[in-house]
Design a protein around this nucleic acid. Structure first.
Lengths: 153, 153
DNA sequence: AGCATTGTCAACTTATCCGATTGAGAATAA
DNA sequence: TTATTCTCAATCGGATAAGTTGACAATGCT
């Protein structure tokens, strides 16, 4: 799962991308329209600005804006910044590889083999969509099917 | 990320799948060979047996075995059992849908639209691989590439 | 019967992380 | 000089995760 913080970060970036070129956007505007606790958002935006993908100005008429054109930021980038990796297990990360605790040796690990595939499929998708891209929301009721064989999840 | 518990569960199930039809496998055998704390493994196995996919017998020569043929259990099933969902956000789960806290309305949420795609790609993969399938581990040094544009993750 | 073996289960602990807030401060513009 | 707006470190409460303890129940062996 993505953390709440990561979800906030993505929505904040979408908000700024939608307003790219319109000058500084005040934090309270983002917080209100995106339903994000304002104080928490300061933590998130300052983290994002350390990566240069958000810029800011203080004082009257200050605010935040994208430090990079929205076509140059992929959703994969955002998730990697906020959570370190796209992978489902540490040993399946390509850019932030770590050995998993209490695992088998990597050369024997079948979980890893599978999770590398999942990571690649995820990356293919998320590195191909950019903040500048239009994304059509999916109606809420859709996306639900009958339960599967084991009746879980 | 998958929890440690989920990773243990998957490896324990692989262990049992590898020995399917060979009678009860004692917990200590699984724990030692799979490098899982024995007492914690009891918690995991008892959880799995509540779903019927693991069976057990007590006493001398007792142990655990798969309650279902390994060809009938997918990795997607296992992850759903252990963590509830394959999705990266609650609102993008197909079998365990929940609205995300502090989000926009689902009909307006672009994060959800994207994460539904990720969930589907993940499910396509993980529901297509079964415990009975042979998986070739990937050599440890492989899978690493140069850093990406933003030098993160 | 008696004992060793092996799984069952609830309760508990401990550590870590997450989400969020507090509060003092610094830049900017009017 | 005042209001506005971002900056940043420290902290807090609660949830979750990982793992342990300890009492108990079933099974098979002698």
């Amino acid at each position: 799962m993505l953390s709440q913080k990561t979800r906030y970060a993505i929505r904040a970036m979408q908000h700024l991308a939608d307003r790219y070129g319109q000058g500084p956007i005040p934090l309270t505007d983002i917080a209100e329209k995106q339903n994000i606790p304002a104080k928490f958002l300061t933590v998130i935006l300052s983290e994002l600005s350390r990566y240069g993908i958000v810029a800011s100005q203080r004082g009257k008429d200050g605010g935040y804006w994208l430090g990079v054109p929205p076509i140059d930021i992929t959703y994969g980038d955002l998730i990697r910044i906020m959570r370190g990796s796209l992978a489902l297990v540490p040993c399946a990360s390509r850019f932030a590889h770590e050995t998993c605790k209490n695992c088998l040796e990597e050369k024997d690990c079948r979980v890893r083999a599978l999770m590398l595939q999942v990571r690649d499929a995820t990356a293919n998708l998320l590195d191909g969509v950019r903040l500048a891209d239009r994304i059509d929301p999916v109606p809420a009721a859709d996306g639900l099917e009958a339960a599967d064989d084991l009746e879980v999840g």
